[in-house]
Design a protein around this nucleic acid. Structure first.
Length: 301
DNA sequence: GGGCGTCAAGCGTAT
DNA sequence: ATACGCTTGACGCCC
């Protein structure tokens, strides 16, 4: 099992800004920010290797406005060697990589323009992973999308657009994640049957958000994991925990190790890489890795 | 140099 | 009707 955390390391300060406003877009600004973002990403990855955290989610904001029409600059070509260098480091250290496009990536939207924008955004995510030379085990995870007043139709439309509109390069990386309100694991399994898309199991969404479908945690996790094929790599699982005293669904600020151990023991027959979606990022990831060791389980490889 | 209004993108739910 | 959460906060103007 590899343990990871998303996008940001709270202990590595940024020396420069990571993005900018659309109103201040310029090629100069883009080049500077992307260069700095790649430098910063390398620092985080080096830290992660030192700490044996070999799973990481790369931020979608690595290249700001990459899928926006304002961006005419060929950043792919300009930064080809920098991306390759990061990718070589990732491969050399066997780091597992995921990306998670934002909530407006909706491939089942009834609005054609939303679908078009979503596909452009997915293509952007792919190009990051492609430029790094990473194989199809590097995944791009999205939610199924909206229900649009007719959930069965919305699911059918997901399948339709998936097959008709997505390029092979997107399909080889794309996975869907059960969400906290609309599409639970059973729904995702139905969409998997339609499309073959693997399911990334989110334990928090499954467990705590009124999204139960009668599947036990270990069954839901196992059935999701079985949708991953050989070329998809080890199944990925997202983990978080309820922030005590807050609205249902709010992520906790730091990991509760008792809950974490319980989760690990319930799923101990299964093989997966675990992404900890917890506010304090690498701090909880390190705590979790230590907890696994004390349970006699082995992290990384 | 700190405070805070606002920031590309969609949807569903709560108020 | 409007605000909010989602999540990765953080830019950038204002004082």
């Amino acid at each position: 099992m590899k343990i990871g955390y998303p996008c940001i390391n709270t202990s590595i300060a940024r020396e420069t800004k990571s993005t900018f406003r659309l109103a201040s877009y310029s090629e100069y600004c883009l080049v500077e920010v992307v260069r700095n973002n790649l430098d910063h990403l390398e620092k985080i990855l080096q830290y992660n290797v030192r700490k044996s955290l070999l799973f990481f989610r790369i931020t979608s904001d690595l290249v700001p406005f990459a899928s926006h029409p304002i961006c005419k600059f060929n950043w792919q070509k300009y930064f080809v060697h920098r991306f390759k260098r990061v990718g070589d480091f990732i491969k050399k250290n066997k780091i597992r990589i995921s990306m998670h496009p934002d909530q407006f990536v909706l491939i089942n939207s009834p609005k054609e323009v939303v679908v078009e924008n979503s596909i452009r955004e997915l293509a952007y995510h792919c190009s990051i992973l492609d430029l790094m030379g990473l194989d199809s085990s590097s995944k791009i995870q999205i939610h199924v999308g909206g229900a649009y007043g007719d959930k069965p139709l919305a699911m059918k439309n997901f399948g339709k657009n998936y097959s008709a509109l997505l390029s092979d390069n997107i399909i080889r990386r794309l996975v869907i994640e059960n969400d906290d309100r609309l599409y639970n694991v059973s729904d995702c399994l139905r969409i998997h049957d339609l499309t073959g898309v693997p399911i990334l199991f989110d334990s928090f969404h499954h467990r705590c958000c009124g999204n139960r479908d009668g599947l036990s945690l270990s069954n839901a996790c196992q059935m999701s994991n079985q949708t991953w094929k050989k070329n998809d790599g080890v199944p990925m699982v997202d983990y978080s925990d309820q922030a005590p005293g807050y609205r249902k669904g709010k992520h906790c600020t730091t990991i509760d190790l008792d809950n974490f151990r319980r989760f690990v023991l319930q799923t101990r027959e299964l093989n997966y890489d675990l992404m900890l979606e917890i506010k304090d990022k690498q701090i909880s990831a390190i705590k979790a890795a230590n907890a696994l060791c004390s349970l006699g389980m082995r992290i990384a490889l």
